[in-house]
Each structure stands twice: as structure tokens, then as C-alpha cells.
Amino acid sequence: MADAPPDISEFPAGRPHWPGWLIATAICIRFYSRLPVPRLPGEDSAHGLPDFRLVPRAVPLAALVIALPATLVLLAAGAAGISPPLAAALAVTVAALTTGAFHEDGLADTADGLFGGHTPERRLEIMKDSRVGTFGAMALGLSLLLRVTALAAILQALGSLAAAAALLIAAPWSRATALYLLATEPPARSSGASAAVGQPTAATAWTALALSVAFAVAGTLAAGLPGSGLALGLALSVLVLAGLARLGRRLIGGQTGDILGAAQQLAEIALTCGLAFALGSAWQ
């Protein structure tokens, strides 16, 4: 979730309105990806800021749609007999293209800002800079390496259906955990994207998390993924995100859109690595 400068005057004031699951899912697809979504009923513009107080409870449903192109590529690559590392790399590439590297941008900016500055003001200034520094480049490289390697390990051990399920499990969970940070952590600046879209209610965040866990359990059972791997992945992601939240509070005073993008990437890495570790093939 990149921290782009929004027009806060567009943010809907007053009591939040729940638009329904279908409309909310479409809004989330538009916000989190480059997939085309037309102007929806009741909207004055297809480019206005979403009201994130209630809408993100549909994030898990939108995440499944967003992950679908990468999933189809992975299934096709598996059916064609393409090697697991190349198939996984193709899937991760399509996933990044589908979102416009939305979350990757946040990860890079977070790494540069948190580790490249010496004061909260300087760290926030670095995070707004579109240029990628050493820490950001290293974070991006490690993220891609870990995601491709973990996905390839699952693909090699259990086949393309299980690897596709891992993608569909990680997509909702990683975005729901980032949403939880948005709901529970204070914004580090009053003019950033995370402040402008509004703070989700606790019920919104917990609904998204509950849906994500339900999808994860169903996907794990249906695809024959190890339950111990899912448990390990969920636990690792919670630990990593707790560390990120604490680091954000200490170094910049809270969360930003970039922090949320980093949270998504870290949660996805933790979950897929947990699944791969439980298979044992990640070490071969």
C-alpha cells in the first residue's frame, strides 16, 4: 500500500456506509490492483478515495480475485511441465504486474525510510521519495527470492494445485493482516494515504481476518497442504507483523501506507515459507 499523496478533501465525511459485499469487493479490487473496475452504482467518479472504515471487510474476497491471474499462470506452467523455480517466478511476476507492484513499492520505501534515516522526520521524508535506495533494493530482492523459492518448494513437493492453493491462501491473509495494522496503529502522518482512506473499525478488521483464516483452512484441506505448515505460517506472520508495528511506532510514530505495503509482503513471505518448511522440501 504505497503512501501516495491523496486529496483528503475527497474522503467521505460522516457516518460510514456499507455498500454491500459485491460493491465493497469491487472497490477493494480497484484499490489494491490494476484490474479494470468500472464506475460503480452511486459513485461520482471511479477514481475517488474509498472509505476504508467498513469497505475493507471485503478485502479477502478481492484478494482472491487479484491472485487469480498468478494462480492461472502457475497452473498452466505446472501443466506444461515447466520447472518449479521458473513456474514460481512467472507466477510471482504476474502477481506483481496485477497489483502494479503496489505492495512491493511500500516494502522498498519502508526499508529505505526505517533504516536510512536518523530522525522520525527524516525517515518519513525518505519514505515519500520515489527513488529506491540500498535498503529498499535489498528488501525487494530478498522478498522476490523468498516468495519464489517457497512457492517452488511447494510446487515441487505437492504439485501445481497445492502451490496454487498456497497463493490463494496467502493473498487474503497478507492483506487482512496489513488491514489490522491500519485499524490498530496510529497514522504516522496526518496527510498520508493510510490517514486519508480512514481507519477501519475493529469489527471490519476482525471480519477480514476471520474470512482469511476460513479461506486458509478450506484451501489447506482441499489441496492437501500440511496443517502444521499453515499454523507455522500464520504464527510467523503474526510475529513478523508485531515486530514491524513496534518498529513503526518507535521510529516514525505509527503506520503509513508504505508500512502497510511492507506488512502485506512480510505476511505473504511468512505464510508461504511456513508451508514450505513443513514440507521439508525447502531444504533440499
Rank of each mutant, 00 (worst) to 15 (best):
Y32E: 08
Y32R: 01
S33N: 05
L35N: 01
P36V: 08
P36E: 07
P36M: 04
V37E: 09
V37W: 04
R39H: 03
R39S: 09
R39K: 14
L40K: 11
L40N: 10
P41G: 01
P41I: 02
E43K: 09
D44Y: 00
D44H: 07
A46T: 09
H47E: 15
G48W: 01
L49H: 11
L49N: 10
L49T: 11
P50D: 15
P50C: 15
D51Y: 10
F52Y: 08
F52N: 02
R53S: 05
R53L: 12
L54S: 02
V55S: 06
P56A: 10
R57P: 05
A62L: 07
A62F: 08
A62S: 09
A63I: 02
L64E: 13
L64V: 15
V65F: 14
I66D: 02
A67D: 09
L68E: 07
L68V: 05
P69L: 11
P69D: 11
A70Y: 06
A70S: 14
T71I: 08
L72F: 13
L72K: 10
V73E: 14
V73Q: 15
L75W: 06
L75E: 03
A76P: 09
A77D: 05
A77H: 04
G78T: 05
A79N: 07
A80D: 12
G81Q: 04
S83T: 07
S83C: 01
P84Q: 04
P84N: 07
P84Y: 02
P85I: 03
P85D: 02
L86P: 01
A87G: 12
A87V: 08
L90E: 08
A91K: 10
A91R: 10
A91M: 09
V92R: 13
V92P: 12
T93M: 14
V94S: 04
A95G: 13
A95P: 09
A96W: 02
A96N: 01
L97E: 10
L97M: 11
T98E: 06
T99K: 08
T99Q: 08
G100F: 13
G100I: 13
A101T: 08
E104G: 12
E104M: 14
G106F: 10
L107K: 07
A108C: 11
A108H: 06
A108Q: 03
D109S: 01
T110C: 04
A111L: 03
A111D: 01
G113S: 01
L114M: 06
G116A: 14
G116I: 05
G117T: 06
T119V: 08
P120Q: 00
P120I: 01
P120E: 00
R122V: 02
R123E: 10
L124M: 02
I126H: 08
I126F: 06
K128R: 15
S130W: 15
S130R: 15
S130G: 14
R131F: 12
G133F: 07
F135H: 15
G136E: 10
A137R: 09
A137V: 09
M138P: 00
M138V: 15
L140V: 12
G141A: 14
G141P: 12
L142K: 00
S143I: 00
S143V: 00
L144V: 14
L145Y: 11
R147S: 04
R147W: 07
R147P: 04
V148Q: 03
T149E: 12
T149I: 02
T149R: 13
T149M: 09
A150L: 06
A150E: 05
L151S: 07
L155Q: 13
L155Y: 12
L155A: 10
Q156L: 06
A157L: 08
